[in-house]
């Protein structure tokens, strides 16, 4: 009915957070450049970049689900835009679906993002030399 609105709402929030985190990181980077800090050779992906992965999943998923809802005639181009919002019974059903399916969707996407971020943190901590040697061995086999 309108379950995609919950992850879309989360996407709005995470996009704002990403912008704030990115501006903070840029300020920190410019400050560290001015005092000439030694260059860290370890790969370090900024947290704002990792948040973009979550944004892409949430925005992309919500857009494709919105397309599905248009396909099924549940989203229309005139007010109130959701056919379920036109009568009280359907409205309560819609709200119930949003609070169950919608919230579960947002939680699952967020949980998968936490998994991806954790895996990326583990990969970042691996010494670069070991990665290069492994890649070289792989090429020779």
């Amino acid at each position: 009915m309108a379950c995609f609105l919950v992850p879309a709402g989360e996407a709005v929030a995470t996009t704002i957070i990403t912008k704030l985190v990115k501006s903070k990181e840029e300020k920190e980077r410019s400050a560290s450049d001015s005092i000439n800090v030694a260059i860290d050779t370890q790969i370090k992906i900024p947290f704002s970049h990792k948040l973009k992965w979550l944004n892409n999943m949430l925005w992309g998923g919500s857009a494709l689900l919105a397309f599905e809802h248009i396909w099924h005639g549940e989203v229309v181009p005139w007010f109130p835009f959701l056919t379920a919002a036109e009568n009280p019974i359907a409205r309560s059903e819609m709200l119930q679906e949003m609070s169950t399916v919608g919230v579960a969707m947002a939680l699952l996407v967020s949980a998968v993002w936490v998994g991806i971020t954790t895996a990326s943190n583990v990969i970042e901590k691996r010494p670069q030399q070991a990665v290069k040697v492994k890649a070289h061995r792989g090429r020779n086999q």
């Binding site: 689900l65 169950t100 998968v112």
Partner: peptide, 20 residues
């Protein structure tokens, strides 16, 4: 990479829908 994340996001959402 962005395209794959779009599809993974939609897949996870449709998976939730399928479970329900």
């Amino acid at each position: 990479g962005t395209l794959s994340l779009i599809y993974w996001g939609a897949s996870l959402m449709w998976l939730t829908d399928a479970v329900f």
